[in-house]
Structures are given as structure tokens and as C-alpha cells.
């Protein structure tokens, strides 16, 4: 068996927002075609990790490195990361009034491919993607996230992922607040990409193990206080659900003392 190629390698990552250190030495390696889940209590730094990977300007990396397919990710502009196949599904995506989803996606698709794509091809793809996600066709003519419900915003993120076909996706609590049907659609979106694009890797950040009933993770990590304190397989998620994060916190304290 050939060695799997590394997609994302996070080493000793420290990051701060507004001067406060949130990440305190994160180590994480995700290889092609792997599905990882990152769990942990509120405020543990999960979303911060996602934002640093996406390149959010408010987050400052103070130490450590992130390599994406062998390149220094932290040297890349936000848009460059996206053009190199990195996708982040936001927990709270922005609203862009006056710009339709279709327009936005066409711009994004053109930026990604570096050429103007034909309107017909684009709409064919968009229609297919919307059907796949069980979204009404009128959805694409709505302004991006403008007045959307929480569930619609999440669906829009997954629709974008389906259209942009990234190599690596980060889902930042995409499952929270979704009913079971919406959750299945999100999971379908991920599973479809995984099936169609063999090398596609995912990091799902979640509070609950519920979505992991539909997306089978290869690895589960637990983050507490800005560090990954445990890693395991799917069983770990079930264990966490049964026992809560307190036991993990206890282990951390024990390990740290």
C-alpha cells in the first residue's frame, strides 16, 4: 500500500485573537481521503482553529505552522487558499445583500478556474447540485444568506462546497441547529464529494456526535483549552457522548499536573 499523501499538517500551532491566546500548541495531521472529527466543549478553540486555517484576519498565529499539501498555508492569502482547493463551511456566514447565490458562485467558480465559465454549463452544474441537496431551484436567485434561516445558511454553505468541489473542507459546526433531515442532507453532501473525489479530506468540527451517525469519521479528536488532548476512532465520540467532556478535562488536568 502506498503512503497516503498529507493534506493538512498542523504543528505546534499557537494563535490569539485580540491578544488572548486561544490555541496553545495544536498538532494535527489529515491525509487525503480521511474524515476527521474535532470535538470539544464550548470555548476550547475548535472554531479558532477553523478560522486560522481559513485565514481570518482577526486571528494571529503566534507560533507553529500549517502546511497544506506541502506548502506553507500561513503565507497564502485567503483567496489563494480557496483557489488551492481549501473550503470552509462557516458557522455564521456573512450576508451579501443584492448578490444572488448564482452570481456569487459564478464569480467563485471563475476565480477558481481562472477563466469565465459558460453560463449554460454553470447553470447545469448548479441545477444538479441543488437537486442533489434537495434545494428549490429558486434558491439560487436569492441574495446570499440575506434573511436566511440558520438551516438555509448551512445548506447554502454545503451547496457552495458541492459546486466548488474542494480537496479539503472544514465544516465549522455545520450540524448545529439542524433538524435530522437537514443534517442528512449536509452529510450526503460530504459523503458524495468523498465518494466522487477519492482524495477529498474533511475536518468536521462539532459539538455533538449526532452527525457522526451519517458521516463515518476515520479519526476523532478532542480539543480542550486550545490543545488536542485525545485522539481515537469513532468509539471516542460515543464515549464522549455518554460521559461528557468532564472526563477528558480530568485527564488533561491529570496529564498536566
Amino acid at each position: 500500500m502506498t503512503e497516503k499523501k498529507e493534506l493538512l499538517v498542523v504543528e505546534d500551532l499557537h494563535a490569539a485573537v485580540e491578544g488572548e491566546e486561544i490555541l496553545r500548541g495544536v498538532n494535527l495531521t489529515i491525509c487525503e481521503s480521511e474524515l476527521h472529527a474535532l470535538m470539544g466543549p464550548n470555548g476550547s478553540g475548535k472554531s479558532t482553529l477553523a478560522k486560522v486555517v481559513a485565514g481570518h484576519p482577526a486571528y494571529a498565529v503566534t507560533q507553529g505552522s500549517i502546511r497544506y499539501r506541502g506548502e506553507d498555508l500561513l503565507e497564502m492569502e485567503v483567496d489563494e487558499r480557496a483557489r488551492k482547493g481549501l473550503f470552509m463551511a462557516f458557522q455564521y456566514p456573512s450576508e451579501i445583500p443584492g448578490v444572488t447565490i448564482a452570481q456569487f458562485l459564478r464569480h467563485a467558480k471563475s476565480a477558481q478556474t481562472g477563466e469565465d465559465i459558460s453560463v449554460l454549463d454553470f447553470y447545469d452544474d448548479l441545477k444538479d447540485a441543488m437537486n442533489e441537496l434537495d434545494v428549490d431551484e429558486k434558491f439560487a436567485e436569492r441574495f446570499v444568506n440575506d434573511g436566511f434561516s440558520g438551516g438555509e445558511k448551512k445548506r447554502n454553505e454545503i451547496l457552495q462546497m458541492a459546486m466548488l468541489k474542494p480537496d479539503f473542507a472544514l465544516l465549522d459546526e455545520t450540524d448545529s441547529g439542524l433538524d435530522i433531515d437537514a443534517l442528512k442532507i449536509v452529510a450526503d453532501g460530504v459523503n458524495t464529494l468523498h465518494r466522487e473525489r477519492g482524495h477529498f479530506g474533511v475536518l468536521i468540527i462539532t459539538h455533538y456526535q449526532r452527525i457522526l451517525n451519517y458521516i463515518q469519521p476515520d479519526f476523532v479528536h478532542v480539543m480542550v483549552d486550545g490543545r488536542i488532548v485525545r485522539s481515537g476512532d469513532r468509539e471516542l465520540a460515543l464515549e464522549l457522548e455518554a460521559e461528557g467532556y468532564e472526563s477528558t478535562r480530568g485527564q488533561l488536568t491529570a496529564a498536566g499536573s
Partner: peptide
């Protein structure tokens, strides 16, 4: 930031 995270340059994002 949101638009750029989908691959648009800053200039394209601002114009959109």
C-alpha cells in the same frame, strides 16, 4: 473575508 474564502480576490470581492 467571506467572499475571498471562496476564491475571489479582494478587488473582486469589494466590487461584488
Amino acid at each position: 473575508f467571506y467572499l475571498m474564502s471562496r476564491g475571489l480576490s479582494r478587488d473582486q470581492a469589494e466590487k461584488l
